[in-house]
């Protein structure tokens, strides 16, 4: 078992960690480039950057509208994210490993606070999972991976917590370490290619939305139809083909009229 642990600490960790970092960088850059491309192609070039900035910041700050509307959910979610990010990053044990392997270290959390954050992440994950299961609007929006993620994320936190705070036998400890390492690696491998990529895409979310509004409604569906691929994948709601699509020439006409009005 020690050999498997060594592999998980060494090559596997390096592979998944680097893939996570580069993958997140890649998805961020690709999103930016593709947004720029979409903007270049859209007929309407007017973007309210100030509003986009405001909205982006508002969604990140805990005093936003959502907090007032759904304080319990927001609170749990906030604590969950706090534990998820700060816990592993500033855990003394993790930082020590960095110190040993590459030679530099940074600020670490006191053990008590780290324990609290870990618990917050575990409890938060469970609560979010239960909310998805029992809250019908959430259930309606959920895909299969949305149920799996909170549970998957909880595993390394749970094993880590147990290893630090319990008197385990050597065998149990090693088994737990194995689970801890391999699930963490698995999560890191998945992060850039799944919805967890929102950890870097959040700042772009409002921009993407704003740009996508620049295209007439139903465009995507119409492209599919044109290509003879109107059968949609099962997890997407049926496209609303009933909305009469705005014709491009009309839109341009409206725009030019607007411009003329402005000029006059």
């Amino acid at each position: 078992m020690q050999a498997w642990i060594d592999f998980g600490e060494g090559p596997l960790f390096r592979f998944s960690f680097v893939l996570m970092l580069l993958g997140l960088g890649r998805i961020f850059v690709l999103t930016l480039v593709n947004v720029a491309e979409a903007y270049r192609r859209s007929p309407d070039k007017i973007l309210n950057y100030r509003e986009i900035r405001h909205k982006t910041i508002a969604w990140l700050i805990p005093t936003s509208r959502l907090w007032r509307k759904r304080p319990v959910y927001s609170g749990i979610s906030f604590l969950f994210h706090l534990g998820l990010i700060l816990g592993p990053l500033f855990l003394t044990a993790h930082v020590n490993l960095w110190k040993l392997s590459v030679g530099f270290a940074w600020f670490t959390l006191p053990q008590g606070l780290a324990n609290l954050l870990t618990l917050a992440a575990i409890i938060g994950a469970l609560a979010l999972f239960l909310m998805r299961v029992f809250y019908s609007p959430a259930r309606a929006l959920s895909r299969r991976q949305d149920y799996a993620w909170p549970l998957l994320l909880a595993i390394p936190f749970l094993t880590g917590y147990l290893m630090v705070n319990n008197t385990l036998t050597a065998g149990a400890y090693q088994a737990m370490m194995l689970v801890h390492l391999y699930t963490a690696a698995f999560i890191m491998l998945l992060i850039p290619f799944t919805k967890i990529a929102h950890c870097v895409l959040v700042p772009l979310s409002q921009l993407v939305t704003a740009v996508s509004w620049k295209f007439p409604a139903g465009t995507g569906a119409r492209v599919l139809e044109t290509l003879g691929l109107s059968e949609r994948p099962t997890w997407v709601d049926k496209p609303r083909l009933d909305i009469a699509p705005v014709k491009l020439p009309d839109l341009i006409k409206v725009q030019s009229q607007k411009k003329e009005a402005k000029a006059s």
Binding site: Q2, G112, T167, T169, A170, Y173, Q174
Partner: peptide, 22 residues
Amino acid sequence: HASPAGAALRCFDCHRLGEVKS
């Protein structure tokens, strides 16, 4: 010392609970 095939000690036979293990 920590291996089940070796001394098979528990972590907290040597380290103290809730303290950084070093």
